[in-house]
């Protein structure tokens, strides 16, 4: 389930890269705001249905819930994953390095749905199992990439930093982390993009989020509901992903000029 960053992007050289996040975000807001008024268009999809506009909850509140769950999970995963990876690359934690690296790469093979499904029996229905499943699953790409990034830092560079009189903490903060930042950021992007998608599946275990209209639409055979949920969630994913792409570009240009 790896979602690697590649250098190919939608943006062509004559369009500034900042346009894409703004464009997706604008479309997202237009969807949230516009669907309740777009009954005519939605009616064309489902001429016979009783209702075509999703009324059980406003899309804005669903979006808020979705973002809340994903950001709480992201916060925990980023802090936890990076701390774990930093800990096992220090002198004292080095014993744990092979095990953690192996588990992080093995864990990538676990399907998110299976992780979500296994979290429910242990934790019950609702928002909590979703957050736990997202944390479990999202930590792995971050651990893996932080490990990879830190290990790629040249040994000579670290030695010269120590020789300059830097403390281990300074080496970590001023040398290792900045050099590993692009790889770590790629891991964060993977983790969050997957989590936005997985959180939507969480609607099946009783969490209220953007997956709701899709599930309701599939259950009732109402295409209009599906379109509302699917478009909103796709636009959310594209907005966040393009934001990260922009962030990576900024980081790359800063690193190359520094």
């Amino acid at each position: 389930m790896s979602h690697r960053v590649s250098s190919f992007s939608l943006s062509s050289p004559n369009v500034p890269a900042a346009v894409w996040p703004a464009l997706w975000c604008l479309l997202l807001v237009a969807c949230i705001w516009g669907f309740p008024y777009a009954e005519g268009v939605l009616r064309m999809l489902e001429p016979d249905a009783k209702e075509v506009v999703y009324h059980r909850a406003s899309l804005a509140s669903l979006l808020g819930h979705h973002l809340l769950v994903v950001s709480v999970a992201a916060l925990i995963t980023i802090v936890g994953g990076m701390l774990a990876a930093i800990a096992v690359t220090r002198e004292r934690g080095r014993d744990f390095l092979p095990l953690v690296a192996q588990v992080a790469s093995l864990g990538q093979t676990f399907p998110p749905v299976a992780v979500l499904a296994l979290a429910v029996p242990a934790l019950g229905f609702g928002t909590l199992p979703i957050i736990v499943a997202l944390v479990l699953y999202g930590t792995l790409p971050i651990v893996r990439n932080t490990l990879g990034g830190l290990q790629e830092v040249d040994k000579e560079v670290k030695s010269s930093a120590i020789a300059m009189g830097m403390t281990p903490w300074q080496v970590l903060r001023q040398v290792e982390l900045p050099l590993a930042a692009p790889v770590i950021l790629a891991g964060v992007r993977t983790s969050i993009t997957i989590n936005i998608s997985t959180a939507a599946i969480g609607a099946t275990v009783g969490a209220r989020n953007l997956g709701d209209p899709i599930i309701a639409g599939i259950v009732n055979g109402n295409m209009a509901y599906i379109v509302q949920g699917a478009l909103t969630i796709a636009l959310l994913a594209l907005t966040v992903d393009s934001l990260f792409e922009r962030l990576q570009e900024l980081l790359r240009s800063r690193l190359s000029t520094a």
Partner: peptide, 13 residues
């Protein structure tokens, strides 16, 4: 980038 559940949903129509 499109979430799987959204893509599956959009295929229906």
């Amino acid at each position: 980038t499109i979430p799987s559940i959204a893509l599956f949903g959009l295929m229906l129509g």
